[in-house]
Design a protein around this nucleic acid. Structure first.
Lengths: 251, 251
DNA sequence: CTCTCATAAATGTACGTACTATTGCCTCAG
DNA sequence: CTGAGGCAATAGTACGTACATTTATGAGAG
């Protein structure tokens, strides 16, 4: 309900409060039986039509509802996919297909790593949280994944069993936000004999190496190096006049 | 100037006409010495502040200007880069670095190719324009590139010497528009011995294989298969809350 | 010359009104 | 039952006003 949802004494703009409340109610499914009209929202929240439209514009632009002259707003499919890079796409795609995703943890602890420290904007000899895993999909090795975090972020994760859980889920449990932007460098490389035995590939074999730096509010907070078996993964990119979409394909 | 720029009798909304005119003037460099304020635009175009803001909101959201309380709008960098896929990024990046870009044309003509025809939504036995090249950068082989076009599009290109010219430039000369959207499938593959001799790589070597379908107004018009030497190319992806940016890196 | 503070200017927020264009629904004639 | 037409509802466009908040500027004190 709108009781107390809007507080005119707060510094936050009215439309922003209304926008937040509408998002909340959308997520809660309040509008499953139809989205209210501008007039109804104006009465319900006791704001002007201008304020309602200011909030609704953002809802529309996010693609959550569709509206037009003469007809009320229609709730659209609720998928709000934030870009999280090709790596995230990879592992999400696996889950969405219901493939069992497990990992073999090769190491998990604190260790210095000059190259990773440089990418995290830290002094070369800083201790970093490092997590090295072989990621399995459907029981078969898919990728070798090594992630470094600043020690202060990784500290609470030292005792975690990462064989069945995702790093971002663990970060969320400790109320640490995931990256909101980042860079990835994707190259095709030969899988080394040592790596080949871990990934159970023939020699020679090709792999996709993804070097990733994740940022939060512009500050590096995650540095990753992942080698995916070339025979089991494809990176899919779709582009149009508005931008790119990235997804993955695992076999 | 604003003389006659806005026509209230037209069906197009006033803000849209204003928006279009501001875009035009921006592109023409009219605002190089500072973007006009809302008040000035209101007077100049004889519209209400609401209409000015409706137009300006779109200019701001397109990232063309930046504005905030107390200070006038600032013109930002004017780069409006249309996404054209990773392949385009690859070859553009080479040109921007001034590296001499040449090609060895392996074949150029009309030929049927069932698999490519399927991707172009054409009957399997249709004749297609096919152009197969080894692309060189700095005198050294970089990629093997094979592109198929529907015969009617490729017909005028049959006599072109593609050893020094880009396909899209040739299409432009014949007033054929380039794709405005498309899909790419990027995988890591082993370079076959036959390909290795063409690309001058050792055996074994890894390569990035890009299968691309370019669309114009939703209709497939280009189908491509490119194998890039893994040791000479990296695909760079940057992502933030708004979307992805893709670029390339050649060595 | 430099720092501080008041002022002006600009955009942001928020209210009001009116009219337009489009849609969906209901009524009514056939 | 069906189709046409009118009517009400709804979002879009466009105008007006006022005040808040932030920034840049300039005057004046030190």
């Amino acid at each position: 309900m709108s009781m107390g949802a809007l507080d005119r004494s707060r510094r936050e703009p009215l439309w922003a409060q209304l926008h937040a409340d509408l998002l909340r109610r959308l997520a809660a499914g309040d509008f499953a039986a139809g989205f209210p009209g501008e007039a109804q929202l104006r009465v319900e929240y006791e704001v002007s039509r201008h304020t309602v439209r200011e909030a609704m514009r953002r809802i529309r632009e996010a693609g959550l509802v569709e509206s037009g002259r003469g007809r009320q707003s229609q709730v659209l499919s609720q998928r709000i996919e934030q870009p999280l890079g090709s790596l995230y796409s990879l592992f999400r795609e696996i889950e969405s297909r219901g493939i069992v995703q497990k990992s073999v943890v090769l190491s998990c602890g604190l260790k210095s790593h000059p190259e990773a420290a440089a990418r995290l904007d830290l002094p070369p000899e800083s201790d970093l949280f490092v997590l090295e895993r072989i990621r399995l999909a459907g029981g078969e090795p898919l990728a070798h994944d090594c992630v470094w975090l600043p020690a202060q972020i990784g500290q609470p994760l030292l005792d975690t069993d990462f064989s069945r859980t995702a790093l971002y889920d663990e970060l969320a449990k400790h109320h640490i936000a995931v990256p909101d932007s980042g860079r990835e460098r994707i190259t095709a490389t030969l899988i080394s004999p040592e790596m080949a035995s871990r990934l159970n590939t023939p020699v020679p074999a090709a792999g996709l190496t993804i070097e990733r730096t994740g940022l939060r509010k512009g500050k590096p907070m995650e540095c990753r190096r992942t080698t995916v078996r070339g025979d089991r993964y494809a990176l899919l990119m779709a582009w149009n006049e508005r931008g790119y979409e990235v997804s993955g394909q695992t076999s």
